[in-house]
Design a binder for these strands. Structure first.
Lengths: 351, 351
DNA sequence: TTGTAAGCGTTATCAT
DNA sequence: ATGATAACGCTTACAA
């Protein structure tokens, strides 16, 4: 009772029949091989066009061992993800490769763990040519990517690095960024500042915090509070509470992510602390630049470039491979660029 | 001189050899067919596990005519896209399908047109099982999807509908949303309001505007200005300018997208117009709810649900297909839900 | 310049 | 309960 749809898809066989030649000749034309009579070639191309022939990538992949599919795995809802994605996409599109996207949910309970396994498995079964991974956290990902690493499939980490295994990495020099934040606050006259981070579960938060603290030590600025806000839902309240506690004891805030900086900005407003006159606020990510006139001063990570470079590096690995041994991992780290908003420098308060 | 990598990938053949059975038996076990001796089954599973066997989806796809890949095509940088994407992803993940993502850049010059063709072609070559499409604009997309429609490949439109061809649609009742916006402004005491839209190039802007204007007529409220801000970069300035021009002549603003409403909000601040006391502002999308205490009043489109429903409908089409004739297109439209922020109702100004 | 045959990894069909 | 063989759409190797 099943309807046979196979016929709807035009194959080389049909073209060969219509042209009165063998499939081989058709194949040669379609692959732009040289040894074909000009007349035959033209005729075959015409027929292929008329029939709307499309080569079957699944078959190509099966035979060549290269699917032309690249897997991109990211935490769902991460602010920097869309821009990285776009950068990666644009490069892959240029290379005529498919981008398979997987979104990993943050709460890593046992169930989420199982889901992750399902994701990797599906990707492995699809014979993807390589992975671009933004790890959920430093500890969890190695478990799932063990198999990827064992099979020596090209893998490029983006934004968040991991110390649990060696892999290519494209991202931001977060330590330097944190250090710079300390310098900027110092240069703008801060003496005692608050740090808001998400804790040590991801490299970005950890390194920005470390760099920031190193900077404070260097510039002899006091750390008034070290607020850890790992939870997405209650961050605003937590920050309200913590800043209220030390009101009057700080004149600067560095938050390792813009969304936290924005919360801090609103908290300060509620505490009647004028920004930037009484309190300077710096974020990280520079993602809220839609209306530059109310922007939080921040650091631009140039996420589009990160995505592009990651894809570029990955494709390089793919095209060079396969290897018996993995090549030496490469790290592409760019220094985040300070972006002046209206929340830090008093001088720049024009408008 | 080429290294033969094929060996690295374990196939059914190896398993069959190790187990001393035919490939068929292995195939049966791996597909959970019933007629296999319990002992043989266990042995085969053990070997498959030990060898780290993964079925090859490319081959499966080739044989079955179903790749297990769904294509999602969206305009790059569209605010609602990530949430829709996530909804679609979660459902596809459940169904163990791959989500291939393509990001289309907005500027539809001739070059962009060619790029779009490349995208569709790649997807067709990959034998994707179906498409979820958020059209860039109403006029452009039909050109590219002609082939998809001709081939009767399942296609679900999301968020933006098109009148150029009939297809499944999952999205928002934008007309009703616009009408509601007029009602809410009226009920909050507005007498003369400004509409900010992006023009008629996409159904969402057009329908929200039409609904809004119909509401104004019904509720006898004056339209003080009909601002069209299609350009992403200079919107803020344009809105500044337009609102300044009619200062004192309006007590309400409806913007068909939150990002425009935010611009309007800032413009009002600069014009020393108190929100919501002197001017009520309503947006659309409800995407800026991170910190509900400073939110623009808006309409929630529940984009995650849209994505999920689109994926669900698409998979339904895929699993039921193939058809000789396309089934009657289905429309799933949900009424946008008004979300009270702090920019509209004076009563709700607590905190 | 063109064709033949084998094979890629798996499943469907028909035996045994 | 298990196996042999063809088939999926295409490419590579080897003729002719």
């Amino acid at each position: 009772m099943l309807i046979n749809m196979k016929k709807s898809s035009v194959g080389m066989k049909q073209i060969a029949e219509e042209a009165g030649v063998s499939m081989m000749t058709v194949s040669r034309v379609l692959r732009n091989e040289s040894n074909v009579a000009a007349a035959t070639e033209q005729q075959i191309r015409a027929i292929a066009d008329r029939l709307g022939y499309k080569p079957n990538r699944l078959v190509r992949g099966m035979q060549s061992g290269r699917s032309g599919i690249v897997s991109v795995v990211m935490p769902a809802g991460h602010a920097i993800a869309p821009a990285i994605l776009e950068g990666a996409y644009d490069y892959l599109h240029e290379k005529d490769m498919i981008m398979a996207l997987d979104l990993v949910h943050g709460n890593l309970g046992e169930r989420a763990f199982a889901e992750q396994g399902k994701v990797i498995n599906r990707l492995l079964e699809s014979r993807v040519d390589g992975f671009i991974l933004l790890p959920v956290n430093e500890d969890a990902s190695p478990l799932y990517f063990k198999e990827v690493i064992d099979r020596k499939i090209p893998l490029v980490l983006v934004d968040r690095n991991t110390t649990h295994f060696e892999a290519d990495f494209v991202g931001t020099d977060d330590y330097a960024g944190g250090y710079e934040a300390a310098r900027v606050l110092t240069e703008n006259g801060c003496n005692s500042v608050v740090l808001i981070s998400t804790g040590d579960f991801v490299s970005t938060s950890r390194l920005r915090s470390e760099g920031f603290k190193a900077g404070l030590k260097k510039f002899k600025v006091k750390l008034a509070a070290d607020v850890i806000a790992p939870n997405f839902t209650h961050n605003a309240d937590l920050i309200d509470h913590e800043l209220a506690k030390c009101k009057g004891q700080f004149d600067g805030v560095f938050a390792i992510a813009d969304r936290l900086a924005i919360s801090a900005w609103h908290s300060c407003q509620r505490l009647k602390l004028k920004i930037p006159q009484q309190v300077k606020v710096i974020g990280f990510g520079a993602l809220n630049l839609r209306d530059p006139r109310v922007a939080i001063s921040s650091f631009d990570q140039e996420p589009y470039q990160i995505g592009q470079n990651a894809a570029k590096l990955l494709v390089e690995r793919i095209e060079k491979g396969p290897w018996k041994l993995k090549p030496k991992p490469k790290t592409i780290m760019s220094t985040p660029k300070f972006v002046e908003g209206t929340s830090c420098s008093v001088v720049n308060d024009a408008h």
